[in-house]
Design a protein around this nucleic acid. Structure first.
Lengths: 341, 341
DNA sequence: TTGAAAGCGATACCAA
DNA sequence: TTGGTATCGCTTTCAA
């Protein structure tokens, strides 16, 4: 193993006959220094390929420039998008992002919080697991003076800034779009009503119907438990085989919509002619199905980016932040599955 | 902001009338210490909620327990899978993974390497960008005694351990499968021949034909430049409209296969009855197309996991590793698009 | 405008 | 078995 010692600040000081403090200040461009000194030091540093020892700086300043980020699952189009957004935004401000996944379990989330706190991250970005309720493990960050920003899947138990998508609005617009296309009996494959996003989407669906003079019918709503393709398939089957089948289905997720699509196609229904279909999330694959699936884009990159901006601001100002919520607008993506001929 | 100072090692020493060194040793359970001292120290530490300052430890030991990981794009099913695999494996050994994306550009890769080196990662996992050739920025890690493990997209210019998928074998099996299904004129939508993975897949395709007594024909091979859906569409059009159209197409990637599928369907060809189709990568969406797309799974999680294991071993043994290559086997995933009725 | 020196918290060497 | 102390590299008062 090669082991040439890196050039240190002291080396430069010795070589230039300056004190370490002066060199430090020069490298950080302190205004009080003479331009000549600064130039000289920087030139020498450059020439000798000086790389500051971040470990020492961090230690001294008691910070790491690392943001912790915890998501339920990394291998998930939406979350990988938020991660990408966070990383890029952090990069611009000289921060790094350390990612962990909770596996959507409380246990995994607690473990991730522990190790991140131990590592000394400067702040936390988190989208909580399905099992998280109180979130004491998250409060630990706040207790240590480290800000936390929640995004997408959030809990109101924690008084932190939050960034979410306006699910209500997104659902409302999706359903409004279906109505405008001429669909009249619109069903909703929903999620668990105790999950905030799902509930909001349900409310948006309901409101859109009411605002457009369509009757809300309980039997046209089915609640998925694990938001799976299979559930989409089965509930759609149930709906279509009922006495009063819908002419359009708004699904809580693209995956559910895919299940729905599979049932409809396997039973000979034509999409969008006979049945309109809308998903939510705008997964990559919605563009590649046949017919392509209309959906609601959640702008994950923007969400990750926004949450990161807020977090870095708090860190820089040494604040913990208020219990505020930023709601990002969704974007309707019209594709074939909802465009009635 | 709460700002109670954390208990430090010195605090404990003072309180128990011991030297800092003894306390340090006690907390790390040095065998030379008396059990009594150890018990006493640990008890006090526990009671006063002592948390070692990781920053100080890292600084002193000159390590971070952080692995750098650079991939072309995070928002990509395969890479997010490798990331997930790396993170989970690192976790088991007490390491963290810091992810960056190069955006498939040399510039982005160099920047990522710089910041990671600056941060003081203990080692690097990298899947190089399309633009990377020499990779001096990667050698910088080796020069500092930090091991590097390449995975998936690799360069032989760098003498490091590598983990890749056996592309040749994967392609060979895919084509063999098509032949066994009864297809006889098998085309290949390939990639750039100067990209290793693409070249290997091409060779595997060719060999499979030869081994099964089928003639290799140049005009049945098309080279995609940016591996896009569009190229899949256009080249398939070209092939099918030629004098001697194929009865099956093996695509370098699922995305290309999707383009292919779209053209075939839009032109009324039946898959798999008239034309068989195979992708490569086993993207999430291959399961959701109609017909579902046969593909070759690259086991990204395993690749990330394996590369991480190798890297951590090297770090622990303070070695840089040899120029070896681990080839992981792919797995054929048979779906509808290649099962000739 | 620059220097001297203390110190961040933990570790490890040399003594005792 | 334990203590004393230098040290890691850098930043930051306080003084000059």
């Amino acid at each position: 193993m090669s082991d040439k010692r890196r050039t240190t600040l002291k080396d430069i000081a010795r070589a230039l006959n300056l004190s370490p403090s002066t060199v430090s200040r020069a490298l950080n461009s302190y205004p009080s220094l003479s331009d000549e000194t600064i130039r000289q030091v920087k030139e020498y540093a450059e020439k000798h390929n000086y790389i500051p020892n971040t470990l020492a700086v961090n230690f001294r300043k008691n910070r790491t420039s690392i943001l912790g980020m915890i998501v339920p699952e990394i291998v998930h189009h939406f979350f990988s998008t938020t991660i990408s957004g966070a990383i890029e935004t952090a990069k611009k401000q000289g921060y790094h992002v350390l990612v962990a996944q909770s596996g959507d379990t409380l246990e995994g989330e607690i473990f991730a919080c522990r190790t991140m706190l131990g590592l000394g991250v400067d702040g936390l970005l988190i989208s909580i697991s399905n099992e998280t309720v109180e979130g004491d493990h998250i409060s630990d960050f706040l207790d240590e003076g480290k800000p936390v920003v929640q995004f997408d899947k959030i809990t109101d138990h924690l008084k932190t800034p939050k960034v979410v998508v306006d699910d209500f609005d997104g659902a409302y617009n999706a359903v409004k779009h279906l109505i405008r296309q001429g669909y009249r009996k619109i069903a909703h494959l929903s999620g668990r009503m105790d999950v905030k996003n799902a509930h909001q989407r349900f409310l948006g669906y309901k409101k859109a119907l009411e605002d457009h003079g369509l009757e809300f019918k309980d039997e046209l709503v089915k609640n998925c438990i694990d938001i799976s393709e299979k559930e989409g398939f089965n509930f759609t089957k149930e709906l279509m085989n009922s006495l009063n089948p819908p002419d359009a289905i708004f699904c809580i997720t693209d995956l559910v919509a895919l299940g729905s699509m599979k049932f409809l196609q396997s039973s000979g229904y034509e999409i969008p002619a006979q049945v309109g279909l809308m998903g939510f999330s705008n997964w990559m694959l919605s563009d590649y199905t046949t017919p392509s699936l209309s959906s609601v884009d959640q702008h994950g990159d923007l969400m990750g980016s926004k949450a990161t901006d807020i977090l870095i601001d708090l860190i820089k100002n040494q604040e913990l932040g208020k219990d505020t919520t930023v709601e990002l607008k969704t974007e309707l993506v019209y594709r074939d599955s909802s465009l009635k001929p």
